[in-house]
């Protein structure tokens, strides 16, 4: 299958993936609030309602737990639901179905039942949507065995990872960053998947490894590019999947660069950066570290409404540059 790449936005790439999956497999359906005629809160589902009709693009009331429960039940019975939660913050309302049912069923039912559920959620800050609509809660779900947690960072990943998630027999939580929906990038035509167990070295370097996720991949790349002017050669890894984490790619990189910095938008304390940091300390890469590991993450506050404070609450390019410079040059 030859695939010609075109430029698509992240949102359109996701829509294309859903369309391809629904065309190919009659058990795939989309469910969520406003996913029908409105086209989705962030216009991701768009015209899917016209193409597949209201039986496969199903509007729900404002009742996340009910929608999630319906999807878990459908998944157990041979369907492949895509459940869109309007903001990932509202996944809290559906936690019982996701954490206590979807994640557990395979294990509690002797492996006879699986839950091939995909939950899609717009996440992150930057839209002025304040504290209840701007969080990054991926670490919550990454703490639960039985779930997979992915964070596509480009249109290419967004399409390929969603198709991989739909192939996966177990529940996959897809955190889509709101600010990335308009990002345009090369996306192959047709069907392809991005494996759900590999991080990706998006920039090779030798002085420092930055492991970033979601939108922070782009900020880290921008910082790395800027720091080439100072002679620094920074490696950037797109984590892509928070669970199961691709430890080996990070370990190999740290063994090469001897320095590690983790950057994510989610709150720093008890975040995925802490997990990566501890993982490295437990691994063979520990003996290659030539500086303390540095974590950058969200500050200790709910995301503010004020746009300046909102920006100040998550890592930004100047801060990444400063921290990376200090780390690579040995000030820390």
């Amino acid at each position: 299958m030859t695939q010609e790449a075109r430029e698509l936005s992240y949102a359109i790439a996701i829509r294309e993936a859903m369309g391809l999956a629904m065309e190919a497999d009659p058990t795939v359906f989309l469910m969520g609030e406003d996913v029908g005629v409105y086209g989705g809160a962030f216009q991701v589902s768009g015209d899917l309602i016209d193409r597949f009709g209201p039986e496969r693009v199903i509007e729900t009331p404002i009742a996340e737990l009910g929608g999630a429960g319906l999807c878990v039940g459908a998944a157990m019975n041979g369907m492949k639901p895509i459940f869109e939660i309007q903001f990932s913050d509202f996944a809290t309302l559906a936690l019982d179905q996701i954490v206590n049912q979807a994640a557990k069923a395979r294990f509690m039912l002797g492996g006879e039942v699986s839950v091939p559920l995909v939950v899609r959620m717009p996440a992150g800050s930057g839209t002025g949507a304040a504290a209840q609509h701007s969080q990054s809660l991926e670490a919550w779900f990454a703490h639960v065995p039985g779930l997979k947690v992915v964070q596509p960072s480009t249109p290419y990943e967004a399409k390929g990872m969603l198709l991989a998630a739909l192939e996966d027999p177990d529940p996959v939580m897809v955190f889509e960053h709101k600010l990335l929906y308009k990002m345009v990038g090369e996306v192959p035509e047709g069907y392809y998947t991005v494996p759900l167990d590999k991080a990706k070295v998006v920039r090779e370097g030798k002085d420092l490894t930055i492991v970033a996720s979601s939108i922070m991949v782009h900020k880290a790349l921008e910082a790395a590019e800027k720091l080439t002017e100072e002679g620094l050669d920074i490696e950037v890894i797109d984590l892509r999947i928070a669970r199961p984490m691709d430890k080996q790619t990070i370990i190999e990189s740290v063994k090469k660069t001897s320095r590690l910095m983790c950057v994510h938008e989610a709150v720093k304390t008890l975040g995925i950066g802490a997990e990566i940091s501890a993982m490295i300390c437990e691994s063979e890469a520990f003996d290659y570290l030539d500086a303390p590991i540095v974590r950058l993450g969200g500050t200790e506050n709910p995301i503010p409404y004020n746009p300046e404070l909102e920006k100040a609450s998550v890592p930004q390019v100047p801060g990444i540059i400063e921290a990376a410079r200090d780390l690579a040059k040995g000030v820390r």
Partner: peptide, 10 residues
């Protein structure tokens, strides 16, 4: 204290 206060230090 970094000028870009978003970034908690190590």
């Amino acid at each position: 204290s970094s000028s870009d206060a978003a970034v908690p230090e190590v």
